[in-house]
């Protein structure tokens, strides 16, 4: 086993594309312990992996080892296809259980990956949302509520346990090999857009998010940090840079079609997500730049083209 035993970090959701990148970024400096329901394919030998449901009792045993430095919680279920009820229960019970373990074993650090989407795209939004803005995403898009509640749970944990340094990261749209809604959207050959709407967007390369997570694991950092990548870009320009063909559809028609297509399982985009290509939802990441020392390394071109990697 490489790395000092006093320097271990638990990463949940380690088998996702982002989780694997995080594991790779950390495992040379510290012992990485992965927890996921899936198998870790192509796992580096020095990474310890536990195939576990995050709600199960045996998760506690993983926390029992001495010298744990941090928990990085990435194991948030985002699958829009599973039933919203199961989704909601899984995500919230998992985080509750993990926080109990952190409290019991007095871990010095918790890093939770939330999302800039918890603010919600709204016509009333300021162009750049600060960390203290209200989390209003669930108002128009009820299935995002588990993400909002996860963020809230992390916030309340932050206040209840001053001995543990809690970090909540809220990145804007993460692009890369990850299979999330914005990357999948930009991977379409003909990209539907909303006729007459062209909001400004922020995107961030998944490797920049990994860097931010690495920085957040360092001691003496705590709080909520928005993360943005290169300067914002209009949706139309992003599609032009990627060489995609936009297909403008009136909003009412798009909503009608996407609702039905989602029900018939033709698309994996829930209809309320259309608001993300209608209204602005951008974050001000100056706090992360100052306190975390975060600096995105990938340019706009590199970030956008990462969806085709």
């Amino acid at each position: 086993m490489s790395g000092a035993p006093s320097d271990a970090v638990i990463v949940t959701g380690v088998c996702g594309r982002l989780g694997r990148s995080v594991a790779r970024a950390l495992h040379r400096k510290m012992q990485v312990i992965g927890i996921d329901r899936r198998d870790f394919v192509g796992r580096p030998r020095d990474i310890e992996h536990h195939v576990l449901d995050l709600r199960s009792k045996r998760v506690r045993d993983v926390f029992r080892r001495p010298g744990l430095r941090a928990l990085v919680h990435l194991g948030v279920m985002h699958d829009p296809r599973s039933s919203p009820e199961e989704h909601h229960a899984y995500n919230l019970l998992a985080v509750q259980h993990l926080f109990e373990c952190v409290e019991q074993f007095q871990l010095p650090k918790v890093v939770v990956l939330s999302s800039g989407n918890v603010y919600g795209p709204r016509p009333e939004n300021p162009q750049f949302l600060k960390e203290d803005a209200a989390l209003l995403a669930a108002g128009r898009f009820s299935d995002i509520r588990d993400l909002v509640e996860l963020d809230m749970a992390a916030q309340s944990f932050f206040w209840r346990n001053p001995k543990t340094e809690t970090v909540i990261l809220r990145p804007s749209h993460i692009l890369g090999t990850v299979r999330n809604a914005p990357s999948n959207y930009l991977r379409l050959k003909r990209v539907p857009t909303l006729l007459g709407f062209d909001p400004m967007m922020q995107v961030v390369h998944q490797s920049d998010v990994v860097t931010a997570i690495r920085l957040a694991v360092e001691p003496s950092v705590r709080g909520i940090f928005n993360l943005a990548g290169p300067p914002p870009v209009a949706l139309s320009q992003a599609l032009e840079l990627l060489g995609r063909t936009p297909v403008p559809v009136p909003h009412a028609a798009a909503r009608f079609a996407v609702e039905r297509m989602f029900r018939w399982r033709v698309t994996s985009f829930p209809a309320p997500e259309l608001d993300f290509i209608r209204y602005v939802c951008m974050v001000d990441d100056s706090r992360a730049r100052q306190e975390l020392g975060y600096e995105p390394r990938y340019s706009l071109d590199q970030t956008l083209s990462a969806v085709d990697d």
């Binding site: 016509p123 939004n125 600060k130 006729l195 007459g196 062209d198 909001p199 209009a234 009136p250 909003h251």
Partner: peptide, 23 residues
């Protein structure tokens, strides 16, 4: 105006901004 198709797009491009103190 940000909820109006075309209007919101045109306003953005000619430099109008939603009247919020932050902006």
């Amino acid at each position: 105006t940000a909820t109006l198709p075309f209007v919101s797009m045109f306003f953005n491009r000619v430099g109008q901004v939603v009247g919020l103190p932050e902006n």
